[in-house]
Simulated assay, not measured.
Amino acid sequence: MQEARTWRELLGQILSDPKERQHLIETLNITPITFTRWVSGESDPRPQNLRQLINALPQKYQEQMRKLVKEEKGVGEIAATPQETSLKAIPAEFYARVLVARASTTENLRFWSTCHLILQQAIGQLDPERRGMSIWVVRCMPPSGPYKKVRSLRESVGLGTAPWIGSLEQNAMFLGAESLAGNVVTLCRPGVIQNLDREHNLMPASRVDYEKSVAIYPILYAGRTAGVLLVSSTQVDYFLSQTRTDLVQQYADLVALAFEPQDFYMPEDIALCVMPSHKQQKEYFAKFRQMVAETMLRAATKNQPVNNMQADMLVWQKLEEELLQIPARQTVRDYSETPAVSIIKLY
């Protein structure tokens, strides 16, 4: 690759790789035409976008990009010292946007579209430098089982910045009593871990790739819980700042507007069970979309048609029932394989 003389030339060279181009488009949520204008000099990126661009680049290009940006008059100061957002609260005008969206969106799309709008704003404010963050709205599954209790949580709507992909929903899984999210729902109070490498034994936590610190806040309404807002970072101690955790709390409160009153459960209605690891769950979710299509087809042949959202929930419920049996079967197997002398020692 020829040595780039300006940051725009370097960006053009990077964008010539289709994989890198797609990665930057998804990570920065910027259209291809915008990148073309930056490369040609037709327009300049906003300060925040330029800093996000540098942090989203592969490591091998970041230092060179900073050097070239500093050399361009008028934009050099932008990348010299990356700054954390000065906003200490959700902008007032954004609350108005959420209320308008909630009022004008059809019932079938209201939950997803409202959550997605809020998460886009949240990830931009909580991770302005694109250091690496994932945000999930995790909701309670409907009560089930012989006692009609909420037995698990499911990751519902999620967004990420690199190294996570932009839209996380295709990777959605169940969480249960073994997770920090489950602990937050059960106790109805926030949970924050600043260093998962160091503190993983202090409280329940089902960890995912890249996750170094996490902040989880319950989604509440009138003393009842609908789930949690789960925010993970690639940075250790990312949630030491009171300003940052206050923001997570504010966004958890705002996400509550996406739920209907019947989606919130009293503490006595929640009895979370242990869910298998994400690795085990992936095998069951491999054919999720196929299962949804088959569910809709079967319903149509019985003259009981269901829409995509209803079929989704039916499949989630089917998978929940199957997965809840795994820890129980594992416990029975472990018990049966334990030597008799060991069993005696337990008593």
Rank of each mutant, 00 (worst) to 15 (best):
E211D: 12
V214A: 07
A215F: 11
Y221K: 15
R224D: 08
V228F: 05
V228D: 05
L229P: 14
L230G: 08
S232P: 05
S233K: 08
T234F: 12
Q235K: 05
F239Q: 03
F239I: 12
S241G: 12
D246W: 00
Q249S: 15
Q249K: 15
D253G: 04
D253Q: 10
L254P: 05
L254V: 05
V255R: 04
A258P: 03
P261R: 00
P261I: 00
Y265I: 04
D269W: 02
I270E: 02
V274R: 02
M275N: 01
P276F: 08
P276S: 09
P276M: 04
S277T: 11
Q280C: 11
K282R: 15
E283H: 13
Y284W: 09
A286F: 13
A286P: 10
K287D: 15
F288S: 04
M291Y: 06
A293S: 07
E294L: 10
M296T: 03
M296E: 08
R298Q: 12
A300W: 11
K302H: 13
N303M: 08
N303K: 10
N303V: 01
V306Q: 04
N307E: 13
N308F: 14
N308E: 14
M309W: 09
M309G: 01
Q310D: 08
A311C: 05
D312I: 09
M313V: 06
L314M: 10
K318Q: 13
L319K: 03
E320N: 07
E322Q: 15
E322D: 14
L323D: 00
L324N: 12
Q325V: 02
A328P: 01
A328D: 07
R329H: 06
R329I: 05
R329M: 08
T331Q: 12
T331R: 12
D334K: 04
E337P: 00
T338R: 15
A340Y: 06
